[in-house]
Design a protein around this nucleic acid. Sequence first.
DNA 1: CGTTATCTTGACCGTCGTCAAACAGGGTGG
DNA 2: CCACCCTGTTTGACGACGGTCAAGATAACG
Lengths: 241, 241
Amino acid sequence: MVNKFAIHVSLSDLDRAAVQGLPHSVRYFESGSYIARDGDLTDHCTVLLSGFAFRHKITGQGLRQILSILIPGDIINLQQLYLDAADHNVQTLTPCKIATIPQVALRTMASDRTAIADALIASTMVDASIYREWMVNIGRRDARTRLAHLLCEFAARLDVQGIAPGQPYELPMTQEQLGDAIGLTTVHVNRTLRGLIKDGLVFQNKRGITFPEWEIFMVEADFNSRYLHLRERGTPPGYSF
Amino acid sequence: MVNKFAIHVSLSDLDRAAVQGLPHSVRYFESGSYIARDGDLTDHCTVLLSGFAFRHKITGQGLRQILSILIPGDIINLQQLYLDAADHNVQTLTPCKIATIPQVALRTMASDRTAIADALIASTMVDASIYREWMVNIGRRDARTRLAHLLCEFAARLDVQGIAPGQPYELPMTQEQLGDAIGLTTVHVNRTLRGLIKDGLVFQNKRGITFPEWEIFMVEADFNSRYLHLRERGTPPGYSF
DNA sequence: CGTTATCTTGACCGTCGTCAAACAGGGTGG
DNA sequence: CCACCCTGTTTGACGACGGTCAAGATAACG
């Protein structure tokens, strides 16, 4: 369970056992609560076991920018073990289950086992790559493409967990949160989403959200999953987006 | 010289010697040339020794988004050693001097010396933090604040290299490039910059760019240097922005 | 000194933001 | 079971920030 976070990172042999043997405690957070706050200092590393969360920052004018969406298996605050205080907030979108690991345990494991250290670095670098793509999205794409791109990213990332990219998934974000993620207002997100639905590219019901024309939708979204680095170095791509 | 990149990252003892002893070759690039391209595979790590460069990506519509500015001491493509192909381009802004280090040398050093591995991770995390702040800047601040923020970041980062934040520095970017960095058009960057100059917040001449009212300017820019993580964990701040 | 890149300015336009109100759904309590 | 909220969605009218197009002015460069 704790080892989830190493799966999509690097092929580790049976030092998976070491990860699974890490001392940790589990905590539960309800929807909307803060897991970490801007300015926090900590000596624990936390991993998201189930549920969804997001990173965000508030500007001097009180505007919020969502920086990334965390899905099960993601490491929440590795950064604070290597730098000083947290520079952003982490808040839950849904009820979440979180594992907390003491810093020392993780660090000694990292220095003992090169493969683990590599996995941590690789994971951090994938995060950075996603940040870069978001910058492109926010800075240089129009509202429609921007929203579509975000929805594609969801589908692609959730797909790794076994859900096919065309399949419905539950989107645990309000339109206000979607707007804060892509630099738009709630109102404009609504209009844009309505437009995508009207054009038959997005289908929505209680079960979740679906993309009837996945191939066309990806083009519309200017989406190419390469930046997610879903495959290992040298691993042949299984399903190509 | 090669060790520059470890200075602002983590206090390493005399394994600085190890860094300085790394096998490397030096290459020179002229202004505007590509150091790395989207899709590149490589087994070398490169470090920027002198000059300025920038990371960027092109959208499907041909629009460019600049992702970060590289200053001397920055590692250019650590990522490609841990992931697969490059997901963005790196291009020079000025003539540049680049050190190239074989992957194996760096990796063995990282696994032998924990402090170095930590420094690499910390450096990657600072990059990620800067990406996050840029997202906030591009997504949630108006043109004037956005431009001012970028200029503040320059001043703060160059300050580490000994230039005081109020001091003039040479801005090696065209207005088109500034626009691509903050998600604006050339024309609007021009108007916005003119506005800042007219209001006495920015002063420009052949020597470079200066901020006569640094304190006021930082407020106007909604700038707080914390996200740059310029100080070590536990190190008291020397000059507070 | 001519050629090209970059900067600057004006007029006009459109995407997206603002303000406001109505509507739907889900939970709570009387 | 039905008022009553509260949160989130939806829609309209209007305005503004920033984009587009185009031209001229400067500066950089061979």
